[in-house]
Computed example of a mutant assay.
Amino acid sequence: MLGLFRSLWDYRGFVWSSIRNEFVARFARSRLGGLWMIINPLAQVAIYALVLSNVLAAKLPGIDNKYAYALYLMAGILAWSLFSEIMGRCLTLFIDQGNLMKKMRFPRITLPVIVVGSCLLNYALLFGALLFVFALLGQLPSIQMLWVVPLTFIVAALAVGMGLILGVLNVFVRDVGQVVPIVLQAWFWFTPIIYPVNIIPDDFKGVMAFNPMYPIVSAYHNALVYAQMPDLQSLIGALVVAAVLMLLGIFMFRRAAPEMVDVL
């Protein structure tokens, strides 16, 4: 493990330059540039808020704000956007970078670190825009919003762990890359992002305990929407799962790296 950190430190210039170049290249010919990273999720929130708040008359108890449902949506999508982006990019990372892995000698661990760094940059821009929109909608910043910082690390660890495991498997069994997007779509609806927790039937609340994103998204809602301290007890399980999966993902990646180069 110390060798991994030493390699990352030695190649820190390569990591930073790769993150910067990827960000610049993504929006090189776009007039709005990085604003598209903010426009897309906010447009998704607007669509859900319009349909579910007005058409289905969805209500959000416990908060006195006529835009409460939109705030609830934005908080949940903030957490999910980071999780799904890291997962999706790690899933195809080694296949996409196969030529680079075969032609250059460098620490392979830098590849997922670059992905995480790029995703966190996108996430930071989205979070800044979200705070601005929150203020416009009457939800002023509170000290509880600082909980987003440790929550971000939990989300990133969970996504990296699962992403590395599935990314390694996808090199050897390409069906994994076809199944995971379907599972992620179902997982999104299995997580209380666009619907409040209080409408979940009691029979299904026990099943929710097996969803590690459930306590994380709930913590985002508590910190950003309700200005409350997250339920730390429920987050312990998600943190343990994230840590175990990340360690397992790193272990699988280190063991399979030489074979992946041959397969690719």
Rank of each mutant, 00 (worst) to 15 (best):
V207F: 10
N211H: 02
V116D: 04
R26S: 06
N40M: 07
I109Q: 04
F172W: 15
W189E: 09
V173K: 13
R255S: 11
I182H: 10
P258H: 04
W187Q: 05
N65I: 03
P192V: 15
I114S: 03
M1L: 07
L130E: 13
G13Y: 06
M229D: 03
L164Y: 01
N170V: 11
N54H: 15
V173Q: 11
V24K: 11
I114D: 06
T191D: 01
T110E: 04
L32R: 06
F27E: 02
F253G: 01
F134R: 01
G167Y: 03
N122F: 03
V45L: 07
V179C: 00
V51T: 10
Y67H: 15
W147E: 05
Q97V: 00
A238N: 12
F204C: 03
M74Q: 11
I193G: 00
L137I: 08
M101D: 03
A25T: 13
M213R: 00
Q44H: 14
I114R: 00
N65R: 11
P212R: 06
V244T: 07
A68F: 11
P212Q: 06
V176W: 14
M1Y: 13
F127N: 04
Y226D: 05
A257W: 02
L151H: 12
P150L: 11
W80E: 10
V168A: 08
I182V: 14
F132Y: 12
Y69L: 06
V155M: 02
A135R: 13
L4K: 11
V24G: 02
G98Q: 06
S18G: 10
R26I: 04
Q228C: 00
V240T: 14
L52G: 03
A58G: 09
G34F: 05
S118C: 01
L73H: 09
P215L: 02
